[in-house]
Amino acid sequence: MIEISNLCKSFTLHNQGGAVIPVMAGAALSVAPGECVGLVGASGAGKSTLMRMIYGNYLAASGRIEVAGVDVARAAPREVIALRRQTLGYVSQFLRVVPRVPTLDVVAEPLLVLGVPADQARARASDLLARLNIPERLWPLSPTTFSGGEQQRVNIARGFAHAYPALLLDEPTASLDATNREVVLSMIDEAKARGAAIVGIFHDEGARERVCDRLVDVTGFTPGLAA
């Protein structure tokens, strides 16, 4: 489902003397449907960078990033947009929304974009929010004023609203209590069971052991550190 080969990336800082910072070289990764691969490595080793490149958020310098047959490293913007709508979901660590949009609509939006009727999309959003223990009285409010843990759960609900065949999860359990952590881990298990290919970053070792089938150390892709 996700096939990465010989992926390289550097940042050129034009306004800081044109400094070139190589951050990744020769990265390779393969994730099958129903499999969850955990990215590990010290802070700054490039876990999030790799994840952002898979999502098309960071531009690859060279190499291939194939997701469901689309090479994200070369695809036109509108191909990446279509891929993100239908195939590739991403739960980032931060919730970015238009202020004042109700939580229920924030969660339903990925479905509305796909043309799912509003009542069905909202019903699905309600189920997810209830499951993630967001009190119903908060659903009509914008999540911008919610606590960190609540925002994260809204973000997770949004990321799981549509049954994406491929999912990227950046620290999905980071600021959750034990109950909600358990809910999220079961949701990941269920996504795997329906055949989703998942790439995740988990600092929580227990979570990693529970849902990851394999771990990939991105330190091996860091230029200068690779053997």
Partner: peptide, 12 residues
């Protein structure tokens, strides 16, 4: 390019 890509990883 893609909006978030241009804003998060600007090239020029």
């Amino acid at each position: 390019g893609l909006t978030d890509q241009v804003l998060d990883d600007p090239q020029h």
